Amino acid sequence: MKLSELSCGVNGVVTGMSELPAATRKKLMVMGLLPNTEVTVIRLAPLGDPLQVRVRGVDIALRKQIAANIDVEVR
């Protein structure tokens, strides 16, 4: 499942980000979005882009296009 498909309040674990460009993947990893890390969707913007996710206690706003390239497993 993709991160962009999760509903608000749902937890998931990142399983892969291989579809992202290397520069974008590196920036997300510096912010704490690593494989096997728990992520929670906090809320969506009114038009659905961006979405707010919580990773390791920090909230990050991600564009839906980027979130659509992050694989997660629902927990």
Rank of each mutant, 00 (worst) to 15 (best):
M1N: 06
K2D: 03
L3Y: 03
S4N: 08
S4C: 03
E5S: 08
S7W: 01
S7E: 08
S7F: 00
C8L: 02
G9A: 01
G9E: 00
V10F: 02
N11K: 15
G12I: 06
V13S: 11
V13F: 02
V13H: 03
V14A: 09
V14T: 12
V14M: 10
T15N: 09
T15S: 13
T15L: 12
T15C: 14
S18N: 13
S18C: 10
E19L: 04
L20Y: 03
A22H: 06
R25I: 04
R25D: 05
K27N: 11
L28I: 05
L28M: 08
M29D: 02
V30T: 10
V30R: 14
M31V: 05
M31A: 15
M31S: 13
G32W: 05
L33A: 05
L34F: 07
T37A: 12
T37E: 06
E38L: 02
E38A: 09
T40W: 02
T40S: 04
V41H: 03
V41D: 07
V41F: 01
R43W: 04
R43C: 10
A45S: 13
P46G: 15
L47K: 15
G48L: 03
G48W: 08
D49A: 03
D49T: 12
D49N: 15
L51Y: 03
R56H: 09
G57I: 04
G57R: 14
G57D: 09
V58N: 15
D59C: 14
I60F: 06
A61G: 14
A61W: 15
L62N: 04
L62H: 01
R63T: 12
R63Q: 13
K64W: 02
I66S: 14
A67W: 09
A67R: 03
A67L: 03
A68P: 04
A68H: 13
A68T: 01
N69S: 12
N69W: 06
I70H: 00
I70W: 00
V72C: 00
V72N: 01
E73S: 14
E73Y: 12
R75S: 12
R75N: 11
